[in-house]
């Protein structure tokens, strides 16, 4: 509980430190506007037009529905990866044989291009939620799995010995000695897994479904509706930035205060 309060207390200071990032975003938007002036509205709509379209879209119930569909798929996919990845990663980390055996499998999973998974999933599951969710899982699972595995494999033997010498009961050993270390590996892995899930979900939707942000993006492409396409991109990037910088980063800072 103290921990949450501390995060909230430090939050304004954290936000205040964001001016640099905001300046750099504005610089990016200025470059974007320059591109618009050079190439014209069809190729690259101006930021103003894009944000106007975005505003109109956010009033539209149908679009909100599409966003929710995508959110649902991404969360289920990511949730399953998170649960499976951390549990299996922990187990694999605690047993040398399991970690040796799992390495090539992880390489296969990571090496296989997501587009290939989408094609296979379309054959296996048809066009729908399952295909998208499956693709999200196979794309973000290995990242989280490797994070948990690395965290468990790199536990400090000296600290384990110390824990034994003080006769720590098993729950203290896990919570005070193992967990903080594993978490310091698992948390960044989750952040990149989440980013991966969010990108893959849109790609899978574009190819395999008729609803969701990805499918809407596909429709915008076929109608050459560049402002809508860009507005959708802004939604995707904006939500990712919100989650990463407003929610996860403050937690990360608080959790990793002990790091040098």
């Amino acid at each position: 509980m103290n921990f949450v309060i501390k995060i909230l207390k430090d939050f304004p200071a954290y936000l205040w430190s964001g001016w640099g990032s905001i300046a750099s975003i504005f610089l990016f938007i200025a470059l974007w506007d320059m591109g618009n002036q050079i190439y014209g509205d069809l190729v690259l709509p101006s930021p103003l037009e894009t944000f106007q379209t975005l505003w109109l879209m956010l009033q539209d119930k149908e679009i909100i529905g599409e966003i929710n569909t995508t959110l649902y798929r991404a969360s289920v996919g990511f949730g399953v990866s998170l649960a499976l990845g951390s549990i299996l990663g922990l187990i694999a980390g605690f047993f040398v044989t399991a970690s040796m055996m799992s390495r090539p499998i992880v390489t296969i999973l990571v090496g296989m291009p997501p587009i290939a998974w989408i094609v296979l999933a379309m054959i296996w599951f048809g066009m729908g939620d399952e295909t998208v969710i499956f693709t999200v899982i196979v794309a973000s699972f290995p990242i989280i799995f490797v994070g948990a595995l690395q965290g468990t494999r790199t536990l400090d033997g000296d600290l384990k010995e110390m824990a034994v010498s003080f006769k720590l009961p098993w729950h203290m050993k896990f919570l005070d000695v193992y967990f903080p270390h594993i978490f310091s590996y698992l948390f960044p892995a989750c952040v990149s897994g989440l980013g991966m899930a969010w990108k893959i979900v849109v790609m899978a939707e574009l190819l395999a479904t008729s609803d969701g942000i990805g499918a809407t993006l596909g429709v915008a492409r076929s109608q050459l509706d560049t402002p809508t396409a860009l507005a959708l991109v802004v939604i995707m990037i904006g939500s990712l930035m919100f989650v990463e910088y407003i929610i996860l980063e403050p937690i990360k800072r608080e959790v990793e205060l002990w790091r040098s």
Partner: peptide, 14 residues
């Protein structure tokens, strides 16, 4: 019994 090690072996996150 208790053990004091050659290196401090403190938990870095505490």
């Amino acid at each position: 019994s208790a053990f004091a090690f050659q290196d401090a072996r403190l938990l870095p996150w505490k």
